[in-house]
C-alpha cells in the first residue's frame, strides 16, 4: 500500500541550504538529470535528504498502519484459502514497512526514531487507513482500489533518483500488483455471488471510491512540493495525472464487475479520451488528515498499545543478548 499526500506536509524544501557548495549542488543536479542513482554515501542537498526521509518514512508508516484494517478480517476470512491469502498479504505489508524503514535508515535516521514520530502523532501515514473495514467486501475493495491506486503511485518511484528507495519499490510493486489482482478477484466473486454479496460489494465500492481517488493527494495547483520533487526525480508525475490514470483504468473494471461508481457526474469524454468525474470533496480529505477520520484514533492507539505491550519483550531480548555476549567474552 501507499501513502498519499506525501508532499502536503512539512516545509517547502529549498534546493541548497546556505553553506552547501554550489559546485556540489550543480554536480548533484546534473547526476539526477542524467538519470544516475544517488547512493547513501553520495553528497546530497540536505533538503533532498529531508524530503526523502519524510516521504519514505510516511510510506513505511502507511504500510504498517495499513496492516490494521485488513488484519481486522484475518480471523473472519470466509474460507481457508482466503484466510491464507489475507495473512500473506498483511504479512507482505509488514515486509514493505521493513524494507522502507531500512531505506530510510540509509539516510541517517533510525527505525526507533521514525517509530517515535509515528506514535507521537508527528509523522503522517496515508489517510486511507483511517477508514473502517466493515464487511468482507472492504477487504476486496482495499486490494482492488487502494492497492490499485498504490501501484499507480509507486511504479514511477521504481525510477526514483535515490537508489535504495527505487530498489525497495521494485519488489514492493511486484507484490502490490499481486495484491491488486487478489482484491479484484474477491470483488468478482462477490459480484457474481448472491444478491446479498453483490450488495456488499457495491457498498464497499461506495465507501472506498472517493477515499481512493483522494489518495493521490491534493490537485496540482494546491500541492506545494511537486515542482522541486520533480526536479529531483523523487516524483515523476503530478497528483492529477496519476489520479486520472487510475480513474481511466478503474472505471472499466467496475463496469466489468457490474458495479456502479458512486459519482453521478462521471462520464466518458470523447475529446480528451478520459473519464471525467465530479468534484472531489476536499473538506473530507482535510478532516481525515487533521485526525478527524472515522478511525484515526483507533489506528494510532492500536500501534501505541502494541508498542507499549511489547516493551517488556524488547527489553528481555536486549537483556538476553547482553548476557549472552558477556558469557561469550567470559568464556574466551
Amino acid at each position: 500500500m501507499y501513502t498519499q499526500a506525501l508532499d502536503t506536509h512539512g516545509k517547502e524544501p529549498v534546493a541548497a541550504a546556505a553553506g552547501e557548495s554550489a559546485a556540489h549542488a550543480l554536480r548533484f543536479q546534473s547526476r539526477v538529470d542524467a538519470d544516475e542513482k544517488i547512493e547513501p554515501k553520495d553528497w546530497m542537498p540536505d533538503a533532498y535528504r529531508q524530503t526523502l526521509i519524510r516521504q519514505i518514512s510516511q510510506h513505511a508508516h502507511s504500510e504498517i498502519v495499513g496492516m490494521l484494517p485488513e488484519g481486522n478480517w484475518i480471523t473472519r476470512a470466509p474460507s481457508l484459502r482466503r484466510k491464507a491469502v489475507l495473512i500473506a498479504k498483511v504479512q507482505d505489508e509488514g515486509g514493505h514497512g521493513m524494507y522502507l524503514y531500512s531505506a530510510a535508515e540509509t539516510l541517517g535516521v533510525t527505525r526507533d526514531q521514525l517509530f517515535e514520530q509515528l506514535l507521537s502523532g508527528v509523522a503522517k501515514y496515508s489517510s486511507i487507513f483511517n477508514y473502517p473495514t466493515l464487511t468482507w467486501a472492504d477487504v476486496g475493495a482495499i486490494g482492488w482500489l487502494v492497492d490499485g491506486a498504490a501501484i499507480m503511485n509507486q511504479i514511477p518511484i521504481c525510477r526514483c533518483s535515490y537508489g535504495p528507495y527505487a530498489r525497495a519499490m521494485v519488489r514492493i510493486c511486484k507484490e502490490e500488483s499481486f495484491h491488486q489482482r487478489q482484491g479484484f478477484e474477491i470483488m468478482l466473486t462477490l459480484a457474481q455471488g448472491t444478491p446479498a454479496q453483490r450488495l456488499m460489494a457495491q457498498e464497499a465500492l461506495n465507501r472506498w471510491w472517493w477515499p481512493s481517488i483522494m489518495m493521490f493527494g491534493p490537485s496540482d495547483g494546491e500541492s506545494k512540493h511537486t515542482a522541486q520533487s520533480m526536479r529531483w526525480k523523487i516524483k515523476r508525475f503530478s497528483n492529477d495525472e496519476l489520479r486520472q490514470k487510475f480513474i481511466d483504468v478503474t472505471v472499466p473494471q467496475a463496469h466489468f464487475l457490474g458495479l456502479t461508481i458512486p459519482d453521478a457526474q462521471l462520464r466518458w469524454d470523447e475529446a480528451t479520451q478520459h473519464y471525467i468525474g465530479g468534484p472531489i470533496d476536499w473538506s473530507e480529505f482535510n478532516a481525515v488528515l487533521k485526525g478527524n477520520g472515522p478511525c484515526n484514533r483507533e489506528r494510532l492507539q492500536a500501534r501505541r498499545t502494541a508498542w507499549e505491550a511489547g516493551r517488556w519483550v524488547r527489553e528481555a531480548a536486549s537483556a538476553h543478548a547482553a548476557k549472552s555476549a558477556a558469557r561469550t567474552t567470559q568464556a574466551a
Binding site: 504498517i64 496492516m67 490494521l68 488484519g71 484475518i74 480471523t75 481457508l80 484459502r81 484466510k83 491464507a84 495473512i87 500473506a88 498483511v90 504479512q91 509488514g94 515486509g95 514497512g97 521493513m98 524503514y101 492500536a302 498499545t305 502494541a306 508498542w307 505491550a309 511489547g310 516493551r311 519483550v313 524488547r314
Partner: peptide
Amino acid sequence: LGEWVGHAPTLEEDLGLANLALDLIGQAR
C-alpha cells in the same frame, strides 16, 4: 496466531507470527 497480526512487539515478530499462522493454516487445509 492470526489474532496477533499487526499487534506484535516488533515488526520482525509480526512477520514471524504471521508466517507461523500461514504455515499452520496451510497444514490444516
